[in-house]
Write a protein that binds this DNA or RNA. Structure first.
Lengths: 353, 353
DNA sequence: CATGTTTATTCAATCGATTGAACAACTAAT
DNA sequence: ATTAGTTGTTCAATCGATTGAATAAACATG
């Protein structure tokens, strides 16, 4: 009997979380006094503050985030929408966003779209329900209509985009200079005397790929190189896409002598096909990728690629959000941060190596 | 003047979120009636329900998650603690956890420990503050004391561990049979007539590595193979560790003829050193890794490794949590789910290939 | 001693949704 | 016509913390 009683007491203790009321009861104070003491309110005596803090520790008090968020209208949560985390690029960016936001007292709620517009819409609704203080996102491949992102803006929730952005949305954006990257690559290949460059790229409705394509065209023109028929191919940029397209290119009448792929995955697929076909890389054909994924240095030959400083992109995205939160009124000037990126020249495109 | 007025009206509309009270005002109902209508309460007439739903759509009502969570004592958020997301293994697992939980109406809050015990403690406190409905975690390398995990249990918050678990904690766990994996590997290598097998592994205070080491020892004994002095080396299992240890092993008097590394990264480091030294793999020395990271098939020779079905681990972890939520009383039987894993035999350890 | 000032704390409303109890209106049964 | 039962809605308390206003006490000043 006694044992049972004892047990139920213990269970009660476990279940019951201490609130400011409990602290108040212990010290003969009201909840509001306790709340003020904990928040270092100037009108509370140091003696009381000390007593409250001690009691809080003794009772293992942990503030109820939900109630204070409700009252203050601020959840200290940030929604993070990405196509998927299962790539080195996104996981690096997320890792850094999370680090920076955590340091500043924010929690990150993750949502993956798997490149699906539908899932993206659902995620946005969900995050808005949760009353996130802001949303950081990289737009899904499928997305061509930005009404849901407009909705975020209309609700007055700060929105920061990275990588896959959109000019029309008129929000903070962190990315790289895709146009210029294409120039770097074409200049490098032209300098190596490659002349028939093909471009395996993403869908041109996405701004970053549109820019890469534009950069590619302009750079080719600048170096007086003709753009072959069918040599700009849009796809999902996965390994399999690279393989498929490379095979098709090899069967073309005018076979290219260099490939600029807009992802390392596509570059890898293309390279695999060339190795299988016994085509010498870079002697017969050069390959340049994009993104500096870790595997690009593991395969032989190592793949030349664009390094985008993922960590920095993540940090800047988080900082842009924090900045926006700090001065919500300063809606005039948008943060359009274009970060540096660099061409890593490796053996897949360097004949003299 | 008119313009200004108009503008401020618009701004107000933007800022103000519609609540159940607004819906009530529109229809001449009280907030409680509206709430019940939205929650499909049996005592509310169908007519009213319909009217409320229509009004909700018209006013673009979005429920305030915070208030309902506060009232119901259920936040529908799950904390996810991982060493870091920036590896294929963890990002795959997380991706699947998120998918399953989202489908079931839960949101995922992420926290990375970066293998630091301190950060782990902070994350746990934070997640408990937020009033998560449960926590899914993989323990940091540094962690040897489990008091913070005990705290989770004491608060009555469901806890599920995966990969890096701990027997003493007595909670749901999803993982693979590490002991048996070591057997598979040793059996394979012994079958290939390798005799002097070294084991590069993680710290033995972590259960999975303890089990792999135990499995390694037992399997070696089973195949009558002597365990060399200094041939079980504990480390952080990064590429650099693999390199360092491989170099040391090469300088040993009794050089091993096979390496069983407890991570693909360590295996990669070791393999790189062997290739640099001109040592034939697998003829002179075999290498087997662990985890089936994507790069293991990119490098030549491809690395033999253990494939752990990451997606399944993630799904099962999420399901274990959901199960625990459904029957909170059924505390008796714990889910200890040991998933299958398979040895992928590739050219780094297959002489006859 | 009356009045003003400072300091420390309590009061009471609030954030938005939920929920059991209460109530009113209506129907069915005795 | 009285009682019982059903149905649809309102009432009021609640979740836990926050915050401006009010109050009380202590002290200083004329």
């Amino acid at each position: 009997m006694f044992k049972r009683w004892n047990k139920s007491i213990k269970k009660l203790e476990i279940k019951k979380k201490t609130t400011i009321k409990d602290i108040g009861d212990l010290l003969g104070l009201t909840p509001s006094a306790v709340s003020k003491a904990l928040n270092n309110h100037p009108r509370i005596s140091d003696k009381t503050k000390k007593a409250v803090q001690d009691a809080a520790i003794k009772l293992q008090y942990q503030p109820n985030f939900l109630s204070s968020a409700l009252r203050k209208g601020k959840s200290n949560m940030v929604g993070l929408i990405v196509p998927r985390i299962n790539t080195n690029y996104y996981s690096s960016v997320i890792e850094n966003i999370e680090d920076v936001l955590n340091e500043n007292g924010y929690n990150v709620i993750m949502a993956q779209t798997n490149e699906s517009y539908n899932k993206e819409c659902k995620s946005i609704d969900n995050l808005l329900n949760i009353q996130v203080d802001g949303i950081i996102a990289s737009i899904a491949n499928e997305t061509v209509s930005f009404d849901y992102y407009q909705k975020i803006k209309e609700k007055g929730v700060p929105l920061v985009l990275f990588d896959r952005g959109e000019n029309d949305l008129d929000v903070d954006y962190i990315g790289i200079d895709d146009y210029n990257c294409s120039h770097l690559i074409v200049a490098h290949l032209a300098g190596q005397n490659y002349k028939k460059i093909a471009h395996i790229t993403g869908y041109s409705h996405t701004r970053i790929f549109k820019n890469r394509i534009r950069g590619f065209r302009d750079a080719m023109q600048k170096f007086d190189l003709p753009i072959q028929e069918n040599s700009i191919i849009e796809c999902n940029l996965q390994v399999e896409d690279g393989r498929r397209i490379m095979k098709a290119l090899l069967n073309q009448e005018k076979r290219p002598d260099a490939i600029y792929a807009a992802s390392d995955n596509a570059a890898l697929g293309a390279l695999e096909v060339l190795l299988e076909e016994g085509i010498q890389v870079p002697e017969e054909m050069a390959i340049v990728g994009f993104g500096n994924e870790p595997f690009s240095t593991i395969i032989k030959p190592q793949i030349s690629t664009i390094n985008q400083f993922n960590a920095e992109i993540g940090k800047q995205a988080a900082l842009a959000f924090l900045e926006r939160i700090k001065n919500p009124e300063k809606k005039v000037s948008l943060n359009k941060i274009i970060l540096d990126s660099e061409l890593m020249i490796r053996s897949s495109s360097y004949r003299k190596l």
